[in-house]
Design a binder for these strands. Structure first.
Lengths: 237, 237
DNA sequence: TGTTCATCTTGACTAAGGTCAAAATTGCAT
DNA sequence: ATGCAATTTTGACCTTAGTCAAGATGAACA
């Protein structure tokens, strides 16, 4: 007998749906969620101008979202790890405004938005949960705003590393050592820096013994320094 | 007999509540909305760490929102004009995460969030409207991300001017000539620039005949150039 | 197992915008 | 009106990160 995949036994539900839905109601939610085939690295989950039909929760792997400017250059707008929800920027326009692309093999749960809205009418905590999710998105965008407008290149890279670390920890994985799913190019693009700058900073962090870097594998050695308790270390190169 | 202020006869409702609520249901919404006393310039509507109780629609005047970093420096995160809704970043945390301060005398409609959630359970279009509002907020944050990470100082200032212009037009006011409610300091802070840079760019735009500037009053003379069809004009200084 | 293409690193030079300083202007409040 | 404080403008100089170029490393595929 095929085991029907369900939110009930998904290890990510504490991140994806914390306390939002009582067990009895979880079945109803389960019924509207569609678990699609895995995406291969580089494949798109949706593209800007696609009809907005659903939001998506990452089950495994990771994705990036990006927008293209009028002049055609790419702006990476976010990275999405297991348990995180993406695609909520299309609600107001009826079409997606960003593109979502798998950074590695990834699986997602597709949550048809119109059905989610109907279900939210019946389940207040589900409505509240999606208001919360969107509110969180807004909040982290505000932090990013600060990062881009006030912080130097070192702070930006450190902040990305710490964010990845925290998100790993939330899934019960090591907050010290992990693999970055995205390229230096994507990091640079997201943080508003040149690739070369990001590369130099990784090297410098390594020289300062704050970080061990080996390609995309990183190990945080000195969290305090990365958090901003950095002294002037010009001597250290 | 006192005239009870109502969304029905608010000229801003097309912006604030476009099509969201049928006339019959508008009364219910009216009943939960509280119209407070005017805020004076510099007064706070809410502060970070205040309990999150409500979201707010601007009736008149304008406000800015800002967050303070750990080091205590300010990041302006948004400007809010009549018809626009602010305060939605506090939903997930039960307390506000940003501060909202009046840039000039301002009045707002206070919409208690818990009551709004209850009402949204009954009125699907209202639920959808608030999902949309938040989705819009996310979308414009993504555009700002691009602006801060990819665009030079000229583009940033031009983009702010055009945004203010579009928002004036939406209210039926002139998109050519208007008064900026915020200081050069706030503009610079919001756009991640130094005050001096913003000031120099205003002067240069004026010299190029793209803009007439007189303090905070601006008149757009050459929209095309501000939109980015700028040629190399180094000669023009 | 090589070949190829993309990604990443490093170095030298440049430019955009920040910082510091001071003057001019504006707007309040007395 | 008058004076004070805040805001805005302008100039000179400097720092940070971007650009260009070349080499090194790594991953994917035949």
């Amino acid at each position: 007998m095929a085991h029907h995949v369900s939110c009930n036994d998904c290890s990510l539900s504490p991140i994806c749906l914390p306390l939002a839905v009582a067990p009895a109601q979880l079945d109803e939610l389960d019924r509207i969620i569609h678990r699609g085939r895995p995406l291969k690295r580089g494949e798109h989950l949706f593209r800007a101008a696609d009809d907005f039909q659903a939001v998506y929760a990452v089950r495994s792997g990771s994705l990036k979202t990006y927008v293209l400017s009028d002049e055609g250059d790419e702006q990476v707008t976010g990275f999405y790890l297991p348990g995180e929800v993406l695609g909520m920027d299309g609600i107001s326009t009826a079409h997606h405004v960003s593109n979502a692309k798998a950074l590695e093999t990834a699986t997602v749960c597709e949550i048809p938005f119109s059905k989610l809205e109907m279900l939210s009418q019946k389940i207040p905590s589900l409505q509240h949960h999606f208001f919360s999710l969107m509110s969180n998105e807004i909040r982290s965008d505000r932090e990013l705003h600060m990062l881009l407008s006030k912080k130097n290149a070192d702070d930006r890279v450190a902040s990305l590393l710490l964010s990845m670390s925290a998100r790993h920890q939330r899934r019960g994985l090591s907050e010290r050592a992990f693999r970055l799913p995205m390229s230096r190019y994507d990091i640079a693009n997201y943080l508003g820096l040149a690739v070369e700058t990001v590369s130099r900073i990784f090297t410098r962090f390594q020289n300062n013994q704050w970080l061990r870097v080996e390609g995309r594998d990183v190990e945080i050695l000195d969290r305090g320094s990365l958090c901003g308790e950095r002294q002037n270390l010009e001597a250290s190169l």
